[in-house]
Design a protein around this nucleic acid. Structure first.
Lengths: 119, 119
DNA sequence: CAAATGATTTGATGACTGTCAACATAGAGA
DNA sequence: TCTCTATGTTGACAGTCATCAAATCATTTG
């Protein structure tokens, strides 16, 4: 399993959480399993919209009631948010009656790093 | 039948891409459908490995015979390569007995742009 | 406590997906 | 031609997934 890049080009601490960019070095079977989980979490249009709605908030977080308008029932929204959380893309926290979701720190840059150009 | 030589590219293959970074502006329903297709193509561990094996080649391309060792049967490899091609992530071309796959131009940077940090 | 609101879980169902065996196709060479 | 090698396609099956309705949980308020 590849760890931190030995000659990591950018000193961004949280950037590489597992692997070299896809085009730099072949993924191991174990790493590909791990990464596929995150891509799979974003492979559904509804989840993609929910994730974007949260990520685009100026505060960086949103309660479920703020983002329910995606064309599916509320239990389905809850189901998708759970998947995003289980994939490590979101974190959630209950405050009073509401549950707030935010993008987990580091995941955006980590995924972007995976897809970064190496040539 | 046999209309498409494996090299033929789909019309929507690498159309100029659509969107602001995920965290900058909410995705529309239409855009999220479009983008989810590409994430879905990378949401399978076997496809991720195949894609990485091709992208990591110094030449930028690989014939099927070079990347078959991913733990599934050859028809399954062919099936996954087809999905990656249909999603616009790969292009293919037959040369003599072998079919070569390469990463479609622009897709890596397009996806990386979607995930780029905005803060 | 009881009612109301916000969110999650459960159960069911129809659709989709990954996989392989078998078959088909395309080119190279004898 | 015919055979061999390299890939792609088809058909079938088991497993997974997205969705909703109904039930349940958590918190606040009357």
């Amino acid at each position: 399993m590849s760890n931190l890049a030995p000659g990591s080009t950018h000193p961004n601490a949280t950037a590489t959480w597992c692997c070299q960019p896809l085009g730099k070095e072949e993924l191991s079977a174990a790493d590909s399993e791990k990464i596929a989980v995150m891509f799979k979490a974003l492979s559904d249009p509804v989840r993609l919209r929910l994730f974007s709605k949260i990520a685009a908030r100026p505060t960086g977080e949103a309660c479920v009631c703020d983002i329910q308008d995606v064309g599916v029932s509320q239990p389905t929204v809850s189901h998708h948010l759970r998947k995003l959380r289980e994939a490590g893309l979101l974190e959630s926290e209950r405050r009073a009656s509401w549950v707030y979701y935010r993008v987990a720190p580091g995941v955006l840059s980590a995924m972007a790093g995976l897809l970064s150009q190496t040539t």
